[in-house]
Each structure stands twice: as C-alpha cells, then as structure tokens.
Computed example of a mutant assay.
Amino acid sequence: MLHLLPSDMRLPFLLILSLLPACTLLQRKPSTPALTKPVYHIDAALAAALKPAAASIEIDLSRQEMRLFNADKVAVVVTQISSGRNTSPTPTGHFKVLEKLPTKFSNRYGKFVKPDTREVVVWRVWEHHGPQPPGTRYEGYEMPHWLRLTWPGVGIHQGEFKPGELSSKGCIHTPAEPQQVIWEHAQVGTPVHIRGSSASHPDAP
C-alpha cells in the first residue's frame, strides 16, 4: 500500500501509523487488580443441625483463623479473620459470649458528622485532638453481628479487611457470610477459646 502513495506523502503516513498504538494505549483504561477476598468454608448440613447450646468457637491468632465447632468438635465454619494490631493486640485465653446484638455501634471508634448534610468532619474520632467540632454529632462505626467477649470492648463482628493483615483495635474482624452463621448459632455463654500470637506479624500500628 505504501508504494502506491506519492513519495512526498509516504513519510507523513508512516508517522501517523507509528502514533496509532500509542493513542490506543492512552485511551485504554488501566486495569485494576482484583482485591483478594477472605477465604472461608461453611458446611450447610452441619450448620442446619447445630444447636446453639452445643456450639463453641476457637480462634487461632497465629493462623488468623476462626472455627465454629459442634458438640463432636467437627468444624461447621472455618474462616479467615483479622485480629488486633501489635499496638492493640487481641487478648488470648478462655472467654464466653457476654452479649449478642444484630448490630452494635461503637462508643469509642466513630466519626463526627454534620446531621443536616451528612458531611463527615472528622473520620477517626479516637485520633482527634481538641473539642468536638461545632455543629457535629458523634456516630459510632457499625459492627454487624456483634458477639462481645470482654466488657472493655473486645468482640467478634463483621468487618472489612484484606487477608493477611491485622486491622483492628483488639476485636476479631470477620467476613460477612461466615460471621452471620456463627452469630446465629452463638448465644450468651457460648465458649470462645483464643490462642496463638500475632506478635511476629509484620503489621505495625
């Protein structure tokens, strides 16, 4: 095709061709890597047969994993979790569920918002210094499917996180689906054993 063009038009034509791939690349949107989702498994048959009085929970901080067991110590739910950071570690030991709520709103971790416009003035109240900004009100962050383990405020609840990271101030963050199943089968008094350590985890504050 190039040899059919007059000689004085060949150079401009080649320049146009050389620019076409670059233009195509400029117009193409950069690909966004897919976020890794937490891994979990729910045995639907065992869950359907599980009575709350027979349920128990075990949490391994070293593996960042939580299991819901039946009376025969067979795992009904296995899920990745995200526990407390090194500056606010999750406590270990034997606990019992002290409180069960469909949703809890934190009285410690929240934001200051303007009620009329819903504008967030301060996102992280616990890092805010000075008085509350005028014209704002405090709103605690939502913690769905809440299971309290200590009265000072450590609990198990649904929370977003990236697998492998430590994200909380001491609570156990879980994916939504397995936490709903665990919450439904737990009751006040359900035993919870937390063991292991995340002290060697690379996540700092």
Results as ranks from 00 to 15, higher is better:
121 V>K: 11
77 V>S: 07
20 L>I: 15
4 L>R: 08
178 P>Q: 08
157 H>M: 08
31 S>E: 13
135 G>I: 02
151 W>L: 10
163 P>D: 11
134 P>F: 00
1 M>I: 08
164 G>T: 10
200 S>L: 13
115 P>H: 07
198 S>L: 09
100 K>A: 07
34 A>I: 11
121 V>S: 13
149 L>R: 03
163 P>N: 11
179 Q>C: 13
101 L>I: 03
2 L>Y: 01
182 I>Y: 03
186 A>L: 06
60 D>K: 13
203 D>K: 12
160 E>L: 14
86 N>S: 10
127 E>V: 00
2 L>D: 00
124 R>W: 05
106 S>P: 05
195 R>W: 13
66 M>P: 09
33 P>Q: 10
74 V>H: 03
176 A>F: 00
176 A>D: 01
150 T>R: 11
27 Q>D: 08
86 N>V: 10
80 Q>S: 03
62 S>E: 07
176 A>R: 09
53 A>R: 02
189 G>C: 12
129 H>T: 14
116 D>P: 00
106 S>R: 08
72 D>G: 08
149 L>E: 14
108 R>V: 15
27 Q>N: 10
58 E>K: 14
68 L>M: 08
59 I>N: 01
204 A>T: 03
30 P>L: 04
85 R>N: 07
160 E>N: 12
5 L>P: 05
26 L>I: 11
176 A>L: 08
36 T>L: 14
174 T>Y: 02
164 G>K: 10
128 H>T: 07
166 L>P: 01
56 S>K: 04
189 G>D: 12
116 D>M: 07
19 L>K: 03
44 A>H: 08
135 G>Q: 07
157 H>D: 04
87 T>I: 04
51 K>R: 15
108 R>P: 03
55 A>S: 15
5 L>Y: 12
138 Y>A: 12
111 K>E: 15
156 I>Q: 04
111 K>C: 10
16 I>H: 00
20 L>N: 06
97 V>Q: 04
2 L>M: 11
51 K>N: 13
35 L>A: 15
169 K>P: 01
142 E>T: 04
151 W>I: 11
63 R>E: 15
42 I>L: 01
78 V>I: 14
187 Q>T: 09
149 L>G: 11
56 S>M: 01
30 P>S: 05
120 V>R: 11
27 Q>S: 12
40 Y>A: 04
165 E>C: 11
169 K>E: 15
